[in-house]
């Protein structure tokens, strides 16, 4: 299993899981706040809609549907 941290909480997922899938699976629904403050989560699952953006290891705007989980990854939504 691969351990990642989601908003400070440790989560274990099978290796190779895509980050967006791991986040949804852990119950996260607010991946980002839209410009008017709405919660948003993945729409296209294919890297084009940019709704699944999260901060990965301090870098904002990572498209979580295109990022495989990595041991020790720190994710903030």
């Amino acid at each position: 299993m691969t351990r990642i941290s989601i908003n400070g909480h440790q989560v274990s997922v099978p290796p190779g899981t895509m980050l967006a899938s791991a986040l949804l699976g852990s119950g996260a629904f607010r991946f980002r706040n839209s410009v008017s403050g709405e919660p948003r989560a993945p729409l296209c699952g294919m890297g084009v809609c940019f709704e699944c953006r999260v901060t990965v290891d301090g870098h904002p705007h990572a498209r979580s549907c295109q990022v495989p989980v990595r041991e020790g990854m720190e994710v903030n939504t």
């Binding site: 895509m18 967006a20 709405e38 993945p42 294919m46």
Partner: peptide, 21 residues
């Protein structure tokens, strides 16, 4: 359609294939 939980059908399958239970 902007609510979390609404996906493209292909997108939903892609997420399911990459670890979404």
């Amino acid at each position: 359609w902007t609510l979390p939980g609404v996906f493209g059908v292909g997108g939903l399958q892609a997420l399911a294939k990459t670890g979404l239970p």
